[in-house]
Deep mutational scan, measured.
Amino acid sequence: KKYKIKVYVKDKKTKKWKKIKEIEVDTKEEALEAIKKLPPNYEVKIVP
């Protein structure tokens, strides 16, 4: 079972969220580790 991490950042001009990358991992633990490495201003969604 794979997890997709969708990473969004808020556009300063439009104030809208835009997706900047998608990370695919195998476990939820890996997903949480990957999220920890991202800057705090990123919004993250984990999709099972």
Rank of each mutant, 00 (worst) to 15 (best):
P40T: 06
P40K: 13
K6G: 06
K37F: 05
D11A: 05
K21Q: 14
E24H: 12
P48V: 15
V9L: 10
L38F: 13
V7L: 05
K6A: 11
K16Q: 07
P39L: 12
D26M: 09
K13F: 09
E22G: 01
I5S: 00
Y3G: 00
N41S: 14
P39D: 10
D26L: 09
I23S: 02
K37Y: 07
A34L: 14
T14E: 04
N41L: 10
Y3N: 01
V9G: 04
K45Y: 13
K6C: 05
I35N: 01
W17F: 06
A34S: 06
I20K: 03
P40H: 12
K12D: 10
L32F: 12
E29W: 11
K15P: 03
V9C: 05
E30G: 05
K1I: 14
L38Y: 12
K18P: 00
V47K: 05
V44W: 14
I46L: 10
I35P: 00
D26G: 09
K36V: 05
K28P: 12
E29H: 06
A34Q: 11
K37L: 11
K1D: 07
K10I: 14
V47L: 09
V25Y: 11
K45L: 15
K18W: 08
K15S: 08
Y8N: 00
Y42S: 07
W17Y: 08
K19F: 14
K12P: 12
I5P: 00
I5G: 00
K37I: 08
Y8W: 06
E22L: 04
K45R: 15
I35R: 04
K6S: 12
K21V: 12
K19G: 02
K19E: 06
V25E: 01
Y3F: 14
V9Q: 09
P48A: 13
A34W: 14
K12F: 10
P40D: 08
I23T: 04
Y8Q: 00
E30Q: 12
L38G: 01
E22V: 08
T27W: 02
I5W: 03
I23F: 14
I5L: 13
K18S: 05
W17H: 02
Y42D: 02
K18E: 06
K15F: 04
I20H: 03
E33G: 05
K21S: 11
L38D: 00
T14Y: 04
Y42W: 13
A31G: 04
K16D: 03
K12N: 11
K6M: 14
E30V: 03
I5C: 03
K28D: 04
K36P: 03
I46T: 03
N41G: 13
V25S: 03
E33R: 10
T27V: 02
E22M: 04
K12W: 10
K2I: 06
V44Y: 13
E22S: 04
K45G: 03
T27Q: 02
K16G: 04
K12H: 13
A31T: 04
A34R: 10
A31I: 14
K4S: 06
E33Q: 12
K18G: 03
K2G: 12
A31E: 01
P48Q: 13
K19T: 03
V47G: 05
P48K: 14
D11W: 04
T14S: 09
A31W: 08
E30S: 05
I20P: 00
L32V: 08
Y42T: 07
A31Y: 08
K6Q: 13
I20W: 08
K2M: 08
E33A: 10
I35A: 08
E33V: 09
P39Q: 08
D11Y: 05
K4G: 02
K1R: 10
K15C: 11
K10F: 15
V9H: 06
E22P: 00
P40Y: 08
I20M: 05
I23P: 00
K13G: 06
E33I: 10
V47W: 12
W17G: 01
K45N: 06
D11L: 05
K18Q: 08
K1C: 12
D26K: 09
V7F: 08
K1W: 07
K36T: 08
K13A: 09
V9M: 12
V44I: 11
D26A: 10
Y3H: 04
K1A: 11
K15A: 08
K10Q: 13
K1N: 08
K18V: 13
K12S: 10
I23G: 01
K37H: 13
A34P: 00
A34Y: 15
K18T: 12
K37T: 10
Y8E: 00
V9A: 10
T27E: 02
K6D: 08
A31M: 14
K10Y: 15
K28S: 07
E22I: 06
Y3I: 12
E30F: 02
P39V: 06
K16W: 05
E30P: 00
K6W: 13
K19Y: 09
Y3M: 06
K10M: 14
V47P: 01
V25L: 04
A31H: 01
L32K: 07
K15E: 05
D26F: 09
K2Y: 07
V7E: 00
I5R: 00
L32W: 14
K15G: 15
K16H: 06
T27D: 05
K6T: 13
K36A: 14
K2H: 12
K28F: 15
V7H: 00
K2A: 11
N41Y: 15
K28G: 04
A31C: 11
V9D: 04
I23K: 02
E29R: 10
A34F: 15
L38C: 05
K12A: 13
E29V: 07
I35K: 04
A34E: 15
Y3A: 01
L32D: 09
Y3Q: 01
E29P: 03
E43L: 15
Y42F: 11
V44S: 06
E24A: 07
E33W: 02
Y8I: 01
K16I: 05
V44K: 03
Y3E: 00
K45P: 01
I35W: 04
Y8A: 00
K12R: 08
K18H: 10
N41D: 11
K4Q: 06
K28L: 15
P39F: 14
K4I: 14
I23R: 02
K10V: 10
K19M: 13
K16Y: 04
K1Q: 14
Y8C: 03
K15D: 09
P40I: 08
K45A: 09
A34D: 01
K28E: 08
K36H: 07
I23N: 01
K21D: 12
K15I: 01
V47C: 10
K10T: 04
P39M: 10
N41P: 06
I35Y: 02
K1Y: 11
K37D: 10
E43H: 15
K21M: 15
K4N: 06
D26N: 12
D11G: 04
K15N: 12
T14G: 06
T14H: 05
K1P: 14
K4H: 07
T14L: 05
L38T: 02
K28W: 15
V9I: 12
V7W: 04
E43G: 15
K21E: 12
